[in-house]
Structure formats: C-alpha cells, structure tokens
C-alpha cells in the first residue's frame, strides 16, 4: 500500500498573543510546528506502515524553511519527503494551493492520501476536499478511524455532531483526519539522527502537472480585501473582593439584568 500524507507548517497559534493596548498581533518568537491534525495524519500513516507494510511519503508546500517539518516527519518514520516550493505558488488561496498539491500528486503513486482536517492558522478545512475533487477521488473527512479490509477496501469512521458514521470505500481514497483521534508518536533518537542524513526532494513548478494559470495569486478566486486586528470590547467593571461581597455583587447584577 502506498500512502501520501500532506502536511502544513503553521505558526503555533496558541503562542500568539495580542498587545492589549494596540490590539495588534505579537508574532515575534512564535514557533513553527507541524499542523496538529496533519500530525495525526502522519500517525495514521505510520500505523499502517507497521500493520500493512505501507510505504509513506510526506508532501508539503511552502517556503524552504518548511524543510523543518519534513525532517520531523522523517524522524517519526516516514520513508520519503517532498517539499513543493516555487515562486509561482506564492499568494495562493485554498483552491490555488489545492491545485499545486494536486499537480504534485498526479506525478506520484498512491492508494490513500491523508490530510489533516484543518490547519490552525486558517481553520478553513478546505484543502483536503478540494484536492480530492481535483484528482477525482472519493473523500471522507473528519476521520476518527480507518480499518483496512480485504483488497483495497477501507472501513471508515467519520465524526458527526451527533456521533459518527461508518462508511466503506475502495482505494484510491482521500481522508482528512482529526488530531484527537490519532495521538502522534514522538520522534525517536535514531530517527532524529537519520532525518538529517536523508534527502528531502525539492519540487518546483517544472516537476508538477498543472496549468500555471491555476496557481498562486493569479489562480486564487478569493482575495483578501483587508485584514485587521479584532477590536477589543471595552472591559466592564472589575472588583477585587472577598467571596461574600462577590456573591452579593453577582446577585445584584443578575437581578438588574432580569436573569434571576
């Protein structure tokens, strides 16, 4: 079985703080990480490597610094790493990103493509299903579990608001997975040492199969009209008081608001 995992390097948004005076983002010193849902995807692939002798390729698109997340994936145990990088890919929205990824995937062999459900910097959850459409593959999103049945048949558990669905699909297939369902392993020491001696393949526009007009800013149907820091709602009354006084104050306010 051949598996390709698509991952994204993201800023650790839980580390981003807001300057309370200006309301602007403080991004200095924020570390870059493998997007959590994507890391869950790596874990699923590595479990299938162990149980079904799968060959695992990891693919990312980004600037050259994205090499770091591929090294981490190699240290976790993937077999092959590809960095998709080219000035022609820059400024892409989700659809143009999906076009570039699909362009690379057309030149690779796979039975299963795994992406994270969504990235923590954009939270769009769009790239997985868009790649599936562009490659004419069936998709199952919000994946909580996957079992391999006989000959290329997958049994899939998909999260819903009320519980879950059990689905069945044949390979080739694309799934988008939840970090909470696939707790990732740690890199092992041997893996970390080896990760830096392994090759990361660099693919530019000339290595992929896609119309140039579908890439980058030009290939993006959506554009950012403006971006702004969220205005901070003015703080209300704040009191430092002992529990007795505090309860009295809360009761008074809730009565004023007709809540009690």
């Amino acid at each position: 079985m051949k598996i390709i995992v698509c991952i994204k390097q993201v800023p650790d948004t839980t580390e981003i703080k807001i300057n309370p005076v200006t309301g602007t983002l403080i991004r200095e010193g924020v570390p870059s990480i493998i997007n959590p849902d994507d890391k869950g995807g790596l874990e699923l692939a590595l479990r299938l490597k162990e149980s079904h002798n799968a060959h695992v390729t990891v693919l990312t698109m980004g600037p050259t610094q994205a090499d770091a997340v591929l090294r981490e994936a190699l240290a976790m145990g993937v077999d092959r790493a590809i960095l998709l990088t080219d000035k022609k890919f820059a400024g892409a929205d989700t659809l143009a990103t999906s076009n570039a990824l699909a362009g690379a995937l057309r030149n690779l062999d796979y039975d299963l493509i795994i992406t994270g459900r969504q990235a923590i910097d954009g939270d769009t959850a769009q790239v997985g299903p868009q790649v599936a459409e562009l490659l004419d593959l069936p998709q199952v999103s919000y994946l909580e579990n996957l079992e391999v049945k006989e000959n290329n048949l997958f049994l899939l558990k998909k999260q819903t608001e009320e519980g879950y669905q059990l689905l069945e699909a044949d390979a080739p297939l694309l799934v988008t997975v939840l970090a909470s369902s696939f707790k990732p392993r740690y890199m092992n020491v041997k893996g970390i040492v080896e990760a830096y001696s392994k090759e990361v393949e660099i693919w530019g526009f000339d290595k992929i199969t896609v119309d140039e007009e579908n890439l980058g800013l030009k290939g993006s149907p959506t554009k950012v009209d403006k971006a702004f820091a969220k205005g901070i709602k003015g703080a209300g009354e704040i009191y430092e008081m002992d529990p007795e006084e505090a309860v009295g104050m809360i009761m008074r306010k809730l009565k004023e608001k007709y809540i009690i």
Binding site: T13, D121, T222, K223, V224, D225, F228, A229, K230
Partner: peptide
C-alpha cells in the same frame, strides 16, 4: 477570523 481568532480578514471573490 484567522490565526486562531487573533486577526480578522475580509475576503472577496
């Protein structure tokens, strides 16, 4: 919202 709710962006198509 983007960046975990840190930033707002207005998008057009």
């Amino acid at each position: 919202p983007a960046f975990g709710g840190n930033l707002m962006a207005t998008i057009v198509c």
